[in-house]
Design a protein around this nucleic acid. Structure first.
Length: 478
DNA sequence: ATAGGGTTAG
């Protein structure tokens, strides 16, 4: 039994003993603070060397130290290094705890190693460790993130089966997951049901729902939710404002959006550059390049430090005005500052190259992305497919389409439109049906381009046939 | 320690 140092009289042997222990504990806490700081700054090498120094001074790292390192490595998408810490813990005779496993589970999922997540969950059970509510929350979040809502729902049933009580975060994760997977109405129903059973929504819950409703264009419902947020005694925070502002820009209510920005400035919510990026992004999308440039300059003069997303916004600006030299240079500048360009950065550049007519450059950069291990390049591929079409290389675009592992509504819409422009209506018709039959939506305008095209070029019968096939496919899906 | 906002394509 440990003696509380406060209760021991000074000067005694026991006191000296517990003082040493206390100092040891304090040192370990200090070590952990250092480790956390370095991990957050993505300087894992420094975190490691601090630990080495500490051990030399006789300070022992504990389970928290290792847990922090695990989180750090997972963030750097270096799951292997994180996982190898389990072995190092064993060597240091430190037992992993639930937090260790929870961190590894979420880290594996973050790095698209879902089966590893499941294995770790299993391993945790086998080691006789009882998963806590956070293990299940994390697992559920993983499934939602990976677009597997059925399995996420199964996790919820498992929580109940294990006799654990869901916590508010459990419901927030569920509501968010449903929204992100296209089940916004179900999310709203769940929310109402929970309220009827006494669930008190947090501010975060309202933000999740407002965001979900905005994204599917249900602005009225979003506005009502915003009112409900205030009626519950919460004040909208920076996240609420950014969400609503973006929604205004999307629905082309520019003035209203800017008024929200003013209000945010007033409340001191614009310090982090999130709101600014939203505005610049909206200006670029609206073709108001000059204003976007001025705004970005102002942003820098205000001393906002670039993070990756704001660099990406700048990259987008360079590309949209055709400053591709600057864009390439920015690529280096970002990495010199210790950040790592992500799929956004590269995709923006690839699209810029396509739009500037440099298809070869775009294709080369696609290869570069592959080398970097950025494998979720669906958007980038879509840019190149569209670029190839626009450069008059439709057959090459079709070849690329055939070779793609994933295709979405953008891929099909782009190809169908461009095939129609080239008057290849029969080919377009085949693709259109392939798209709808696989349960994907396609731009209405692309659909009509095919039907009208067939009709006006003397294929009335084919046009009628296509229409009824589309209707049938859509009926089957309901 | 794990949940919510900003940046990409038709």
């Amino acid at each position: 039994m440990q003696i509380s140092p406060v209760l021991v009289k000074p000067g005694g042997v026991q006191s000296k003993f517990s003082e040493e222990r206390m100092v040891g504990k304090l040192s370990t806490r200090l070590l952990n603070i250092c480790v956390v700081s370095f991990c957050k700054a993505r300087q894992l090498d420094k975190a490691e060397s601090v630990i080495i120094d500490a051990v030399r001074l006789g300070i022992r790292p504990n389970v928290v130290t290792y847990n922090e390192l695990i989180v750090g490595y997972c963030r750097l998408s270096s799951f292997e290094s994180a996982y190898s810490l389990l072995q190092r813990m064993r060597e240091a005779r430190i037992n992993p705890d639930v937090v260790t496993y929870n961190s590894l589970i979420s880290g594996a999922a973050r790095n698209c190693l879902l089966s590893k997540s499941l294995d770790l969950f299993e391993e945790m059970l086998q080691r006789g460790m009882a998963p806590d509510i956070w293990s299940f929350n994390t697992l559920m979040h993983c499934f939602f993130e990976l677009g597997r809502p059925e399995e996420a729902n199964q996790v919820f049933r498992d929580i109940i089966l294990h006799g654990l009580s869901p916590c508010p975060a459990t419901f927030n994760i569920m509501i968010n997951g449903l929204c992100k997977n296209g089940y916004t109405s179900n999310a709203l129903m769940l929310f109402r049901n929970l309220q009827r059973h006494g669930f008190v929504p947090e501010l975060i819950t309202y933000n999740i729902l407002i965001n979900g409703l905005c994204k599917v264009g249900r602005l009225g419902a979003a506005r009502r939710m915003l009112k409900e947020l205030s009626a519950s005694g919460y004040l909208p925070n920076a996240i609420t404002y950014t969400t609503v502002m973006k929604c205004c820009f999307r629905s082309r209510r520019f003035q209203q959006g800017l008024e929200i920005l003013q209000e945010m400035r007033h409340k001191g919510y614009t310090f982090d550059g999130f709101a600014d990026c939203t505005v610049v992004g909206a200006l670029i999308k609206g073709g108001r390049i000059k204003e976007a440039t001025n705004y970005m300059d102002q942003m820098m003069r205000n001393g906002i430090k670039h993070d990756l997303a704001s660099y990406n916004t700048l990259m987008n600006l360079y590309c949209k005005v055709g400053k591709l030299e600057d864009a390439y240079q920015l690529l280096d500048e970002i990495e010199e500052g210790g950040l790592e360009c992500d799929e956004y950065t590269h995709t923006i550049l690839i699209d810029g190259l396509c739009k500037a007519g440099n298809i070869e450059g775009a294709q080369q950069h696609m290869k570069h992305m592959n080398v970097l291990g950025l494998k979720s390049h669906l958007v980038a591929s879509n840019c190149v497919v569209d670029g190839l079409c626009k450069a008059g290389q439709i057959d090459n675009a079709l070849k690329m389409f055939e070779s793609m592992e994933m295709r979405d509504s953008f891929t099909y819409s782009s190809l169908v439109h461009n095939l129609c422009k080239a008057r290849r209506y029969h080919c377009a018709s085949k693709l259109l049906l392939g798209c709808i039959n696989s349960g994907m939506k396609i731009l209405r305008s692309a659909q009509w381009a095919v039907i009208d095209g067939l009709q006006y070029s003397g294929f009335q019968k084919e046009a009628r046939k296509l229409k009824s096939k589309i209707r049938l496919a859509q009926m089957v899906q309901c």
